[in-house]
Design a protein around this nucleic acid. Structure first.
Lengths: 336, 336
DNA sequence: TAGTTTTATGAAAGCACTTTCATTGTATAC
DNA sequence: GTATACAATGAAAGTGCTTTCATAAAACTA
């Protein structure tokens, strides 16, 4: 009860007060089920009385790991980040690891994290999600032995979970072509944050190539970009639908933007899919809710896999870097 | 230079490489003037070559400069959790705090977190989201001086951000009544996880009361519950819409379930809002995409506020517990 | 009732450092 | 040329924790 006005309590003080050995105290803290419930109660009482808090540093030293996995992610602006994160969290909750989130909203922030996290040694592993990193950063991660896996950004020496966006763009185009469309437009976003990657560009590349291969023209007015907001996307889609000879199909580079297209169509009285086919990309949860046909990229799975690779790397650091490609496929629903 | 592909370097490795004892390494780091300059140079060289970082110090320093805030949250099954979390993360990213996420999927897990985090969590503050906690837990949090704020669950001695779900239910009912509806149904979920709170019940209470006050009957067949999945909600809504005299309006207890209702209506060729008004609850991002009229509860804001309270509590622990009520309002869009 | 398994505990050996103390070899004083 | 003060270093003892291993007691099994 009386706070020791000396130094803060240690495990030895608790052991003495509760009349057991320090080993038992440690067990109460880390594996309570292994100690008799009466003893446990006594120990907890002592812990409370002494306001004992185990020192994290000593603990980490003895354990030789911290039990913490970090995730650097762009701030949750896009739903896809959240869904990947969900995959990460789900995979981790079965393991004895804490999940520490670092959201980045500026290049400075990213640089900061990337330079401090590897050297503070507070993490057993790191996942870097949908963010691009430099050579210097990669070298530092490697040098300080912080096992890392990247999602959506390939790197030769670090493990990664990669998505072939160009292939996805191609799939979308081929799907629409197979459905008989010949006037197919693209709607992407204008995100330009230098720290973030821009998979949309690759989706356009693949899309373009597929049309070229099929000898279908892609007039420049069929390629539109809008800021990543519902309203502006709707506006741009609306413009696109009102040109003199509008497309019969639109490939929206993300499901989120597909919703804007759908809304524009609704407002203009354009029937989907009869008058306009719409295909998205991502297969967010909400794609299912609104029956959106889309290119599925298994977002949750990407997170799950990242953790899987990371944990195997932590278990055996000598393992070589792995590069996993997640396949894409088309989910045919009601809009195309 | 050659990165030891084993664990990261310790003071012993440096000692070996530079041919001195570990005591000298320690001195170079902590009291360089006590070491011969040639030796010092050799040691620094070795430190560089091995990319050695004294762990204890690095950790201690890191811990001194950045605090850690924990969030206990139900696993990201419902979008509303994610949106509150987004509010939390957004508010925190401007501060020097790490965000540690603890997702709970079972009562055991929750109990575990609640009993271990105040002691071994090394946290500066804790947010408990949409989860119910016992007296014992609250006492422990208080006793171990872990500043805590609850979201969606009131408690006399802990701070909280509260939502008046009953009032929300009432608002929804009153809105529909004002629109002239007299046959109004309720569709909620059947979530029964004992660790989680169930705001839906309160929404129903308020809804019921408002109908009673307005002398509008609520036949039992107008109160439906469905498991919290898109498909089952749609099914239940479908059944509801096919009874002999179906409702002209449905209050879905969450936006997510409102989507199921909307889908059922679409499939049955029931026009919204002409033949059926639908109002949701939450104002999720997706409510806007689908133009859903709903009771808005400022989810992001709830997270932001929780952090605000928490940080002020951390800054000045003597502050009394705060209880903030977030007002609700109706967002009128296209479905009711 | 002896034999076996299980449960609960403690002793002691780490872990990555810091610090004290003893031991060198040298520079300085007389 | 001897006594003395330093300077530079290492051996070893702490630090606060976890974990392995051994053991005693209790609980089953045959």
């Amino acid at each position: 009860m009386i706070p020791k006005n000396k130094k803060s309590a240690t495990i030895y003080d608790v052991a003495e007060l509760s009349g057991v050995s320090i080993a038992t105290i440690s067990r109460v803290l880390n594996a309570p089920e292994k100690v008799n419930s009466e003893t446990r109660a006594r120990v907890f009482k002592a812990i409370d009385d002494l306001a004992f808090v185990p020192k994290a540093e000593a603990r980490a030293r003895a354990l030789r790991h911290t039990g913490r996995i970090g995730v650097i992610t762009p701030f949750f602006t896009a739903p896809s980040f959240v869904q990947r994160l969900r995959g990460l969290a789900g995979a981790l909750s079965k393991e004895r690891y804490e999940l520490v989130i670092y959201t980045v909203e500026s290049t400075d922030q990213l640089i900061n994290y990337l330079s401090s996290l590897p050297i503070t040694g507070n993490l057993d592993g790191l996942v870097i999600m949908s963010l691009s990193i430099g050579e210097e950063d990669a070298r530092r991660l490697l040098e300080h032995n912080l096992p890392t896996v990247l999602i959506e950004y390939p790197h030769p020496t670090l493990s990664s979970v990669e998505i072939d966006d160009a292939a996805g763009g191609r799939m979308a185009a081929e799907y629409l072509i197979a459905k008989g469309h010949r006037r197919i437009a693209f709607l992407g976003d204008t995100d330009t944050a230098e720290y973030s990657i821009h998979p949309i560009s690759q989706r356009l590349v693949g899309f373009r190539q597929a049309l070229l291969d099929a000898h279908i023209p892609l007039p420049e007015e069929f390629v539109r970009l809008a800021p990543y907001t519902q309203d502006q996307t709707r506006q741009v889609a609306s413009d696109l639908l009102r040109i003199s000879s509008p497309p019969t199909a639109i490939f929206a580079a993300t499901d989120f933007q597909a919703l804007g297209v759908l809304k524009a169509a609704r407002q203009l009285g354009v029937h989907v899919p009869e008058q306009l086919a719409v295909i998205g990309f991502d297969d967010l949860d909400l794609a299912e809710y609104v029956d959106l046909t889309t290119v599925r990229q298994y977002l949750d799975e990407s997170g799950r896999l990242a953790i899987e690779i990371l944990l195997s790397r932590i278990a055996d650091p000598s393992r070589p870097a792995q590069h996993i490609h997640i396949p894409l496929d088309i989910v045919e629903r009601a809009t195309a």
